[in-house]
């Protein structure tokens, strides 16, 4: 694979077709991956024994018969994290396009101040969640 210029060309955003080439390769690998899984599962189907018994199909709970409902109630806390994540991650995504240009000529100090404003917002949000007791359980 070494020394072939194909990938280097694709890395240049100025080359129009490179963009689609790169993601076409990713798509091809996804197809290869799906094929791999399909072949593995089919081979597995041929190799494995099938011996039915109703006990095997019970949910496993430490070796005793399962108690109560299959789907249990669980902590709401977990879903608060999902919310927090969505809020922060959507912010954080904006860092990436900005990161590629912020030190370019003509930006410099201005973008740096913007960055501190941005980090400040994130930090205040985090402090608020912390203060509200979302991040600590006990």
């Amino acid at each position: 694979m070494k020394g072939q210029p194909v990938a280097a060309v694709a890395a240049d955003p100025a080359v129009g077709s490179g963009y689609f080439d790169a993601y076409a390769a990713v798509g091809l690998l996804a197809v290869v991956g799906v094929l791999f899984v399909a072949v593995a599962f089919s081979a597995n189907r041929l190799l494995r024994p099938v011996v039915y018994s109703p006990e095997k199909l019970l949910a496993y709970e430490c070796g005793v018969d399962p108690v109560g409902e299959d789907w249990a109630h669980t902590q709401i806390r977990y879903y608060v994290y999902a919310f927090l994540y969505v809020i922060f991650a959507v912010d954080a995504i904006y860092l990436f396009p900005w990161a590629t240009v912020f030190s370019a000529a003509g930006y410099g100090a201005g973008t740096l101040v913007e960055m501190f404003v941005f980090i400040g917002f994130l930090a205040v949000g985090l402090l608020y969640a912390w203060k509200k007791g979302v991040l600590e359980w006990t």
Binding site: A10, A11, Y19, V26
Partner: peptide, 14 residues
């Protein structure tokens, strides 16, 4: 020198 499966423009993000 391009010793990579496939260079993706926004690789880090991807």
């Amino acid at each position: 020198d391009g010793f990579v499966g496939q260079a993706v423009d926004a690789g880090l993000f991807f």
